[in-house]
Amino acid sequence: MHEITITSGRNLPHIDPWLTIWGWEIPVYLFLGGLVSGILFISAVFYLRGRADRYPTIVRVGPLFAPVLLAVGLLALFLDLEYKLHVFRFYTAIRLESPMSWGSWTLAAIFPLSTLWALIHLKYVLPNWRWPWPIIEKLIDFFSGYSRAIAWLLIIYASLLGMYTGILLSAFNARPFWNTAILGPLFLVSGLSTGVAMIMLLSRDEAERHLLAHIDIFAIAVELFLIIHLFMGFLASTQIHIEAAKLFLGGPYTTEFWVFVVGLGLVLPGLMELLEVRGKILPTRIPAILVLAGGLLLRFIVLEAGQFSQWTF
């Protein structure tokens, strides 16, 4: 027997009996951040490869949603702050060791970039739209001249954003379940997959959707590979990490994770997309929706499980 008891009545809000400092806001933000990074990344890539006209949804329509979704994510992030008046403090320091500092500065860059990107493409998507202020038109025209440079910047910052959402958690050594280098790539790929799924929902073009499905199948395969490695890594590590993995292997998160995230959020949509590309079944929106739901749930579960896992098992 090993009884460990706090006997002085400690009952700190959201710390005891286990961490619940982060509620819905952070997973929603992580989800939207990943999604936006995915949208912007493929948009910029295909733009640079000169496929804007062939794949208009990927290159032009998707990015229109990026700043909006990012704003919602940022709002969630803001709502999570306990000292909202001090939000500006993120921008009075550059802390190279802090992923959150990296994140806030990345956001400071990618939010205007994504807005600009959306504005540049808006006139293609809505050709009749006119801004009431000519100055805006002029500015957009000016920046359109630097589209390629902006696209390159987007590739960099979208990758940073995607990675940061993963690294943010894996930087917390204190929480055994987050204490793995695999979370970064996993969230990055999952962000790409959800971004692709989002565009898939918007796209009406068969060829485009096939392309997206191909990308997604690849992303899903990588995700499954990473998940398996995640658990293998844990099980090969210290007792604390084995305990953390057990949360998903018979523990409280087992069903949610394996049935909903892996089964319904990855394997099933992956299979459906595979059949779709091979023309075995009619294309539907179902896999895209499943991927999005799975991506959101993944972040909720990872966030909660990480907070639940402790060093002192």
Binding site: E82, H86, A93, F172
Partner: peptide, 27 residues
């Protein structure tokens, strides 16, 4: 306290659970 945003990253980072959010918002 004046610099703290209450983002709680430090709480998540502390393996000893030694920190808490003060009712006034700072950690």
């Amino acid at each position: 306290h004046d610099l703290c945003t209450g983002c709680k990253a430090c709480i998540a980072a502390c393996p000893y659970d030694a920190r808490y959010v003060h009712p006034e918002g700072y950690v």
